[in-house]
């Protein structure tokens, strides 16, 4: 369990592909209103790309997210979601009623911006949770 799993070919391929995976994850998040995509999918793609680097490079990994950071990211994501709901209450609406948030524009656009906010929260929560579960299950000491 302590040695690296990959070969030279796998290592080079991962180095080439991971930036595109990360960009694709962010694209799936911000373009989720107009095409298939959204918070859960973006979170899975972002988490899986970091897990992939960890799997291939083993203990000699120099780039990644530790368990503590991943738990912090996941809790921040869940907090963003609940916080947007409470912010809607502060501006006079119901819980999670994004139409009253103080953005410029007509109501459907304001609701779309609120939706983007909670999708960001979902993305951070899912990505952080996946990374922490993987890091725990492979039993790496830090």
């Amino acid at each position: 369990m302590r040695q690296r799993y990959g070969s030279l070919i796998l290592d080079t391929t991962i180095r080439l592909l991971v930036p595109f995976y990360l960009i694709y994850g962010v694209y799936a998040l911000v373009h989720g209103h107009y095409s298939p995509g959204g918070g859960f999918q973006a979170g899975v793609v972002l988490g899986a790309s970091i897990i992939m680097v960890n799997m291939v490079q083993g203990d000699s990994v120099t780039w990644g997210v530790s368990k503590q950071t991943a738990v912090l990211v996941a809790s921040i994501g869940t907090f963003i979601y609940a916080g947007i709901g409470i912010a809607a209450m502060i501006w006079g609406g119901n819980y999670l009623d994004y139409g009253v948030l103080p953005f410029r524009g007509i109501e459907p656009e304001v609701r779309a911006l609120g939706t983007l906010g909670i999708e960001t929260g979902v993305t951070l929560g899912v990505a952080g949770t996946f990374i922490v579960i993987f890091n725990l299950l492979i039993g790496r000491e830090e």
Partner: peptide, 20 residues
């Protein structure tokens, strides 16, 4: 089902931790 898939992966993680 989109949410059910992701929740299924997370709960499988909990099950694997218990088995560990």
């Amino acid at each position: 089902m989109l949410t059910a898939i992701v929740v299924g992966v997370a709960t499988t993680g909990v099950g694997l931790a218990l088995l560990y």
